[in-house]
């Protein structure tokens, strides 16, 4: 790859201070470091992975509205959390977290538990209770 071929396809990084350092050849054929804001195939791969996650969350959101799952299930999916990892963050067992995904059990949770869950997900208790 030559320096002038280093892609600058901004889609994800340009609003942050994170950059890719690319190694590319200058006109004398010597390697130099060049900063890049991204490359389309990579950006598309990342966006595709997210679109799969978003589709899955939309499906779960539907099930929450139908009363089959609790809002926690939706937030887990949306935030790429798994019951196992949330269990590690909160100290609850994985089985308990899975139970909290059932609407009838979620409805009975006290504020303290909700606060713990919301805290680990980095959202507020109100957000945790809703699916907005």
């Amino acid at each position: 790859m030559k320096i002038k071929e280093v892609p600058q396809d901004g889609a994800i990084l340009e609003s942050t201070e994170v950059r890719d350092v690319c190694y590319a050849l200058d006109e004398d054929g010597t390697y130099k470091e060049v900063l890049s804001v991204g490359w389309s195939p990579k950006n598309e791969a990342i966006q595709f992975a997210w679109s799969a996650i978003n589709e899955e969350s939309a499906k779960i959101r539907q099930e929450v509205m139908e009363g089959k799952l609790s809002p926690l299930a939706y937030h887990l999916s949306r935030l790429v959390m798994t019951p196992r990892i949330l269990a590690d963050y909160t100290g609850f067992s994985t089985r308990k977290i899975k139970k909290f995904c059932r609407p009838e059990l979620f409805a009975g949770l006290n504020h303290e538990v909700l606060e713990k869950l919301a805290g680990a997900l980095n959202i507020s208790v109100e957000q945790l209770r809703s699916i907005d």
Partner: peptide
């Protein structure tokens, strides 16, 4: 396609300097 996307991300996502460290 998701598997393929995963390979591309490992090749290019932050940290490889392009093309999975080859450059």
């Amino acid at each position: 396609a998701l598997n393929l996307a995963q390979v591309i991300r490992m090749l290019e996502e932050i940290g490889t300097g392009g093309a999975g460290f080859r450059f």
